[in-house]
Design a protein around this nucleic acid. Structure first.
Length: 424
RNA sequence: GUGGGCGUAGCUCAGUUGGUUAGAGCGCCUGGUUGUGGUCCAGGAGGCCGGGGGUUCGAAUCCCCUCGUUCACCCCA
């Protein structure tokens, strides 16, 4: 095949009509549910000062090797980066605008990570998410978890599991880190080379290894849940009983950690069993009580989640749920008299709120009917010599068994409306 | 960044001891006389076999490089 001169950059892709409509519908479902729960949308920049993202953790992969960064044309130039996630930017916005807490916001948009692409993993991908800033109450955790859970449910997904853990608070973390570090050091001979490197930088993340060779060591490692301070343990207990009360099934996942360093206390992940293991994380989040302060704002507890739109759609495919929206075009105008009538008829229908389309190029009736069928339109409105002479139009049912009939041209909108209640 | 698979018409793919004008299905276009789609029938358009180099009398078919894609690791959504 002759290569085109250009193609979408590695790890990016074009989302074409049928798929794009489905995607927008999915975001609309999320937006609706978030707004019903009192969240307002924030649209923030797609790039920020690199420093904003460095607060995610100086030795996380996202910061050290996956950032799309660049300098602007200022003097001196500013070091900027495309956002690899949205939480940091939202916290930056909170510190900048100081809204009255609790600040409950939702967002949607593309994120960028310079990674090796594979199925369900792109260099540009879309997330929807929420954040709650300024609420320490464990009921906020429950509310957020319930929103995520119900979103998956509302799409029709049945094979999503909620994995839950607590990473403890600043009071309880050090003792655990010490115990974990000591244990892993003692067993380092049994770890893979890669995990020994990870151990140097962040022992916690060794628990996240999927390598065979690490599993026996990980299985016997001390667990954070056994080291929680009184406050952290109580917070976690309230969160769990709240989920129980709402009938939300969750799995305790005591070795669950997250790839970004800012998390504290409650953390969670949504795993889609319909997807292969490497990409089954369709959402995740947790508390990050210190992040706003790290960015120069007031001490502010926070929590939230981000859900991967691309992967959720893959999971919907795998489960055969959430089909795209029906075609917006209700009437396809077939005009074999030159196209002038199609022009005015479409205009009239559209102004009445009825989706209408037609073909171009003065094709034969047979060809136009074919296009009408393919368009997914429910009805064909046919204009030929006879109709023009009589001042009429033929309305034909393309989907049901209502056949066809001729009606006065000026009754078109009314006649069409009778087929389907309401505009569209 | 590391390792494996794959790369032939718009799509899904055939095409082995390397040898005449490279195939199928789907899709698309045009027809099947007297205005009508979804089924059926017949024609047709559309590929320098991802790109570059090499081996050979001759390569889609062998070798190298490169790009893309895919899977796993890493990490995450």
């Amino acid at each position: 095949m002759a290569e085109p001169d250009f193609r979408a950059p590695k790890g990016t892709r074009d989302i074409l009509p049928a798929e794009s409509g489905r995607r927008r519908a999915l975001v609309d479902v999320f937006a609706r549910r978030a707004e019903l729960a009192g969240f307002g949308e924030v649209v923030s920049p797609m790039f920020e000062d690199l420093g904003v993202f460095k607060r995610l953790g100086e030795d996380t992969d996202v910061v050290t090797k996956e950032m799309f960064d660049f300098f602007d044309k200022g003097d001196p130039p500013q070091h900027l980066a495309l956002r690899p996630e949205l939480t940091a930017g939202i916290c930056r916005a909170y510190a900048e605008h100081r809204p009255v807490p609790p600040w409950k916001i939702w967002y949607e948009g593309p994120q960028f990570r310079y990674e090796q692409p594979q199925a369900g993993r792109y260099r540009q991908f879309t997330q929807v998410g929420v954040e709650v800033l300024g609420a320490d109450d464990p009921q906020a955790d429950i509310d957020v978890l319930a929103l995520g859970w119900s979103f998956y449910e509302s799409l029709g997904l049945g094979q999503v599991r909620l994995l839950l853990n607590s990473l403890g608070d600043p009071g309880s973390r050090p003792a655990y880190m010490e115990a974990l570090g000591a244990y892993l050091e003692a067993r380092s001979g049994d770890l893979t080379d890669q995990s020994r490197v990870t151990l140097e930088r962040n022992p916690l993340r060794v628990l996240d290894s999927k390598r065979e060779g690490d599993q026996t060591v990980i299985a016997d490692a001390p667990l954070m849940v056994d080291f929680l301070s009184g406050d952290a343990a109580e917070h976690f207990r309230v969160v769990r009983s709240g989920l129980d009360g709402l009938g939300i099934a969750y799995e305790m996942s005591p070795r669950l950690v997250r790839g970004l360093d800012y998390y504290t206390r409650t953390i969670f992940e949504f795993a889609a069993d319909a997807l292969p293991g490497a990409q089954n994380a369709v959402g995740g989040g947790g508390r990050y009580d210190g992040l706003v302060e790290d960015l120069g704002g007031p001490p502010t507890p926070g929590l939230g989640f981000a859900l991967g739109v691309d992967r959720i759609l893959l999971a919907c495919d795998a489960e055969g749920v959430f089909p795209g929206p029906p075609p917006a075009v209700l009437v396809f105008v077939v005009d074999v008299t030159g196209g002038g009538s199609a022009l005015s008829m479409c205009q009239k229908l559209r102004e009445a709120g009825i989706g209408a389309d037609r073909s171009y190029g003065g094709r034969s009736m047979k060809a136009q009917m074919k296009v009408a069928d393919r368009s997914g339109a429910r009805l064909a409105a046919i204009i030929g010599e006879d109709e023009v002479a009589a001042g009429e139009v033929t309305i034909r049912d393309l989907r049901g068994d209502a056949g066809q009939r001729r009606v006065p041209l000026d009754m078109l909108v009314q006649e069409v409306s009778e087929f389907v209640p309401g505009p569209n």
